[in-house]
Write a protein that binds this DNA or RNA. Structure first.
Length: 110
DNA sequence: TGAATGACTCGAT
DNA sequence: GATCGAGCCATTC
């Protein structure tokens, strides 16, 4: 548990918080932005910890590169993730984000 | 200590 | 074009 690892998760949370309202991004995009595109799974692991992290981390804005709500099952309510996305103007049908390319936000785009 | 798992991604068939 | 398998990194049992 080196402090470097802590920074890695902290950066993930920071990037997720930087996601604009009504936008979403992918695990790979975050991992790639942090220089560890191969560690996309670690991003998902970090999201699992995000429930205990403050300030609140909009993990619902993080989906796989396919625009599929793969992480909804980890939310308190599986419908909560979709509901939060729809509340931001994102259309979600059958756990699939519609117009994913349109709402996709790349952290490197800053 | 070794092996298995996971909110993923890419490449090959 | 769709489906299957292997790879990667960190955490957990």
């Amino acid at each position: 548990m080196d402090s470097e690892n802590y920074n890695f998760y902290d950066r993930i949370f920071d990037v997720v918080r930087l996601i604009p309202h009504g936008r979403v991004t992918s695990y790979g995009a975050i991992a790639s932005f942090l220089g560890a595109k191969r560690s996309s799974r670690m991003v998902g692991w970090a999201m699992n910890l995000s429930h205990s992290v403050e300030p609140f981390v909009p993990a619902h804005r993080v989906v796989n590169r396919n625009g599929l709500l793969t992480g909804k099952a980890h939310f308190k309510d599986i419908n909560e993730m979709q509901q939060l996305l729809e509340a931001e103007g994102i259309v979600v049908i059958d756990d699939q984000i519609q117009n994913f390319m349109d709402v996709f936000w790349d952290p490197a785009s800053l």
